[in-house]
Design a protein around this nucleic acid. Structure first.
Length: 247
DNA sequence: GCCGTTCTTCCCCTTACCTCA
DNA sequence: TTTGAGGTAAGGGGAAGAACG
């Protein structure tokens, strides 16, 4: 029984995108020529590898994955990338920086837009199409997620900074107002006519202001401006879009 | 059902290499 | 030509979760 998952469908869409790119492989070839290391060499045994891996029963994978510990997995990865690298070559290229071509990056980006994580099947398919090792695709997605998170943190930082500035301004304004009120020579009669002081409490989760139901409390005609933190109801209880504080 | 082990995947931090001003 | 900064592929450690005996 063949069940086509939604992710697989979207992956196939991106693979169509990939074919569009792959047809124009001049970019890839030129990079291969200009650099000593051919990251983009299509693994000659990639199909065999995939079949072999599919045969390995992995308890966690929905389909299959490169099983074993990292070192073993890397061995399989190496095998997938051609398997004809000699020990000397291997040692030579062990830590050489492998630059992905523009096409490969574009395709990876496109796939990332659709889903920022890949299941093992998608990873294998993408690696095969790009002529990369599955590990490379995995690493690329990991690094891409890290970059996204970093960017989002920077954005959040900016927002917090602006909020802080707004609150500082608001605080300054209120301090000034308090000073002005203190400066007034208020008569006891004036106090009697005033509504009782209202203590505002803010719900920490939804950031809405709760006005206590004091028997003397009168509904205010003037809206209370609370500043940037008093968000509107639809925004209240908004889950974090990024699990920055997951750990 | 509980527990320990194994395996996989993820995140995080870091390193090493590449590119460019 | 050299050099330093920034970008990024990759290594390694640790945690979480699932499967298994």
């Amino acid at each position: 029984m063949m069940l086509i998952q939604k992710e697989d469908l979207s992956l196939s869409l991106s693979l169509n995108f990939l074919h569009k790119f792959s047809s124009n492989s001049s970019d890839r070839n030129s990079e291969t020529l200009t650099r000593g290391i051919d990251v983009n060499r299509l693994p000659s045994t990639v199909i065999d590898c995939e079949e072999e891996e599919t045969g390995v029963s992995s308890p966690n994978s929905t389909v299959s994955s490169v099983s074993g510990k990292r070192s073993e997995r890397d061995d399989v990865d190496r095998a997938c990338s051609g398997g004809n690298i000699s020990d000397e070559e291997d040692a030579e290229t062990a830590r050489k920086k492998l630059r992905l071509s523009k096409n490969q990056s574009a395709i990876l980006e496109e796939t990332f837009k659709q889903h920022n994580t890949l299941n093992p099947k998608q990873k294998l398919a993408l690696a095969k199409q790009l002529g990369l090792r599955p590990r490379q695709v995995e690493v690329w997605f990991q690094n891409r997620r890290a970059r996204t998170k970093l960017k989002q943190t920077e954005v959040d930082c900016e927002v917090l900074k602006r909020c802080c500035e707004n609150l500082t301004d608001e605080n300054r304004r209120l301090q000034k107002e308090v000073q002005e009120l203190r400066a007034l020579k208020l008569s006891p009669q004036f106090y009697m006519q005033m509504a009782p002081p209202t203590t505002l409490t803010m719900c920490p989760s939804c950031e809405r202001v709760a006005v206590p139901s004091h028997p003397m409390a009168q509904p205010r005609t003037r809206p209370i401006h609370i500043g940037p933190w008093a968000s509107s109801a639809p925004l209240a209880h908004r889950p974090f879009e990024f699990d920055v504080f997951r750990r």
